[in-house]
Design a protein around this nucleic acid. Structure first.
Length: 297
DNA sequence: CGTTCAACCTGGGCGC
DNA sequence: TGCGCCCAGGTTGAAC
């Protein structure tokens, strides 16, 4: 589920807890298998209780809570992976509540939950060095909301990988996932199977531009809620970015721009959706496609 | 360097 | 109803 726009929406949904003190961290047990928590729950809870939440940050697709106490700072790094999310109210199912942050004192919020149905998410408590190792520039590239064409070209321009697969590489650019990779390439008019090294140099600027635009729009619309609508905002509303999807999840549906049925293929064991007419590889056809999209972005 | 596959999990949807 | 299969927003490590 959560790609950059969904995680950014989670982060914003946690703005209200910044400045509050943690009374207790709880890791409820249930019938489902526990998620990965490091250090072990009891130890983690002991280290965090009493600290103040000094910030709610995002690094790529991770939520990072800054936890301070006199002379000391720790980072709670939460990776929602496929179905994790933060909630300020009741969870869809109590069995999948993975962590409860009990807040001290009086305020609008008494607690915040991390909920994760599939349980692929992870929670880590790290010091400054650990944060650098887990979220530093060796692991995560420039943020998708700010990435430039030069950065993309430098990271991927010589790669033989298909451009769609490469855009999912978090070291190249942080935050793009399967939904938005498809949407970005549709808006750029580029065939997802194109090898990076075959892309004309100036197309990286175009991809970067569409990356920033698609992700920013999705943040504005509070992320994509699709399928079983697992994803919700922290106050339990669905996102609206799915209403703008041009290709993702639309196999055989006529392309909104040209009417050609959207195709689904598999790349690196993941579905890729694209319009075989609007997104093209050949130089001449690409010119045509770009001209089309230049008129209707 | 790059690709492929399996694994980590739960649950919804579909065909029979 | 039930069973079996396929699918899902992510990431990692092993094998080739």
């Amino acid at each position: 589920m959560p790609e950059l726009p969904e995680v950014e929406t989670m982060r914003r949904g946690l703005a209200g807890i910044v400045g509050r003190r943690v009374a207790a961290l709880e890791f409820p047990r249930s019938r489902v298998r526990p998620i990965s928590i490091s250090p072990p729950p009891a130890t983690l809870a002991g280290r965090v209780a009493g600290r103040t939440i000094a910030g709610a940050h995002r690094r790529g697709k991770r939520v990072v809570l800054e936890l301070v106490t006199a002379g000391d700072r720790l980072w709670l790094v939460v990776e929602p992976r496929m179905t994790g999310l933060f909630l300020v109210g009741d969870p869809p199912s109590p069995d999948h509540v993975r962590m409860r942050i009990q807040l001290a004192g009086r305020g609008a919020l008494g607690s915040v939950l991390f909920w994760d149905r599939r349980g692929l998410g992870t929670i880590r408590l790290l010091d400054d060095r650990g944060l650098e190792a887990a979220c530093g520039t060796a692991v995560l590239g420039p943020d998708g909301l700010a990435v430039t064409g030069a950065e993309l070209r430098s990271a991927l321009g010589r790669s033989r990988r298909a451009v769609k697969v490469a855009l999912l590489d978090q070291r190249a650019v942080a935050g793009i996932g399967n939904i938005y990779a498809a949407e970005i390439l549709f808006r750029a008019g580029i065939d997802p199977r194109t090898a990076c090294r075959r892309l004309a140099a100036d197309l990286w600027e175009r991809i970067a531009d569409r990356t920033r635009a698609v992700l920013a729009e999705a943040v504005r619309l509070e992320g994509s809620s699709i399928g079983d609508e697992t994803y919700r905002t922290a106050d339990n509303r669905p996102g609206r970015a799915q209403l703008r999807h041009r290709v993702y999840g639309r196999e055989n549906v006529p392309c909104r721009d040209c009417g050609t049925p959207v195709r689904r293929i598999v790349q690196a064991q993941r579905s890729t959706f694209f319009c075989p007419t609007c997104q093209v590889r050949s130089r001449a056809a690409r010119r045509r496609g770009l001209a089309t999209h230049a008129r209707m972005p």
